[in-house]
Nucleic acid binder design. Structure first.
Length: 355
DNA sequence: AATTCGTGGAC
DNA sequence: TGTCCAAGAAT
């Protein structure tokens, strides 16, 4: 094993983080293996998502669906409701599809190879390598944002991302040991999260600081170099919170694909246009006594949305169609993305407060 | 290669 | 307040 890997593994033994989906180094040494289902589920949830945000969702999912077969047997709507709030909802749709394939076509067992894993929906380069390494001890090159940062600093790779990805992957493959590749991968990610951080890295505590080219030559904070970001346009629209005489709220289901695909919403004007949408009550989906009820702002990855919120009370339930009425106690369990919860809360301030 | 996908926390 | 960014994938 190369010296860099040995030093990294020793550091991981001493300083690894503990997560509900993890097997510790000592457990692994005693032959306890990670459950591929839990590794897969956690890796999907962790895509572009912080550990702290994932924890409660992971616990809820494994408590409710302890096996891939149980998840495959769940309803799509139950999975989307359970995922609501975590973001990137195509992950939830692909999660369900993947569970069905594994349960129904692969005898309930995840593939152990990169190729087999990548063929499954929602599993790309990173996740395939991570599952292969962590769950099956394959010496796969696991490259996430942490590893990109660590490696561009270790080797002083100044090519901007994402063009540098292939070069980074080759470096990672070269230093990945055949012994304990899963612990090595997790160690590299822990190193990036705890020591080799984006700002103010703790280089003095780094187990491989003796081999870091950037530490010797310049400023680690300048790595990785990234391509400039696009600006974020502002879009506007209106949201309509219709309340029945019994206090129910009218919801619809969004189209299966695209932004917030398959999730629930209150009726809205179009906000796909780059110019301002119609923010007036004239754009209401059906006639009612609409009154302005404030506005909300919500930041998506590639645009910012400002919604004027209108509310109407004592709306006759039969006037609205292509949707359903959610009672006050049902509302918190609907598949409502955060932006929709904000809009409803603007009209009904205590809609999502604990009973 | 460039876009389109959420959300919340840190600074 | 604005900016970055967090275990990326699909198209």
């Amino acid at each position: 094993m190369n010296r860099r890997a040995a030093q990294l593994l020793q550091w991981y033994d001493d300083h690894h983080r503990l997560f509900p989906w993890r097997v510790t180094p000592s457990e692994r040494a005693r032959g306890i293996l990670a459950d591929p289902y839990r590794v897969w589920l956690s890796e999907i949830m962790l895509q572009q998502t912080t550990v702290e945000a994932v924890k409660p969702y992971f616990q809820a999912f494994v408590a409710r669906w302890p096996t891939v077969g149980a998840l495959a047997a769940a309803s799509d709507d139950d999975v989307m409701r359970a995922w609501a709030g975590l973001g990137y909802y195509s992950r939830a749709r692909n999660l369900k599809k993947c569970a069905e394939i594994v349960a129904n076509e692969l005898n309930g067992e995840f593939p152990s190879t990169i190729e087999g894993l990548k063929a499954l929906p929602g599993i790309g380069d990173y996740t395939a390598a991570a599952i292969a390494a962590i769950a099956f001890d394959r010496p796969a090159a696991v490259v996430d944002g942490n590893v990109e940062r660590v490696v561009t600093r270790l080797f002083a790779i100044s090519t901007p991302l994402p063009a540098a990805k292939s070069e980074i992957r080759a470096k990672v493959q070269a230093i990945t040991p055949t012994n304990r590749p899963g612990d090595f991968a997790q160690g590299m990610m822990d190193l990036g999260a705890m020591i080799c951080t984006p700002r103010r890295p703790a280089c003095v505590l780094c187990p491989v600081n003796d081999d870091c080219r950037v530490l010797g030559e310049g400023d680690p904070e300048l790595y990785p170099v990234k391509a400039p970001k696009k600006d974020r346009p502002v879009r506007q629209g209106a949201a309509f919170v219709a309340i029945s005489s019994s206090g129910s709220v009218f919801l619809r289901k969004r189209p299966a694909s695209g932004l917030l695909g398959g999730m629930a919403e209150v009726p809205c004007t179009d906000w796909t246009a780059r110019r301002d949408g119609d923010t007036s009550a004239d754009a209401a989906p059906f006639p009612a006594r609409w009154s302005a009820s404030g506005s909300i702002s919500h930041v998506f990855t590639h645009f910012e949305l400002r919604l004027s919120v209108y509310r109407a009370e004592n709306v006759a339930e039969k006037i609205a169609d292509n949707g359903w009425w959610a009672s006050p106690d049902e509302l918190p369990d609907e598949a409502l993305p955060t932006v929709m919860k904000k809009a409803i809360a603007a009209a009904i301030p205590d809609a999502f407060k604990a009973a």
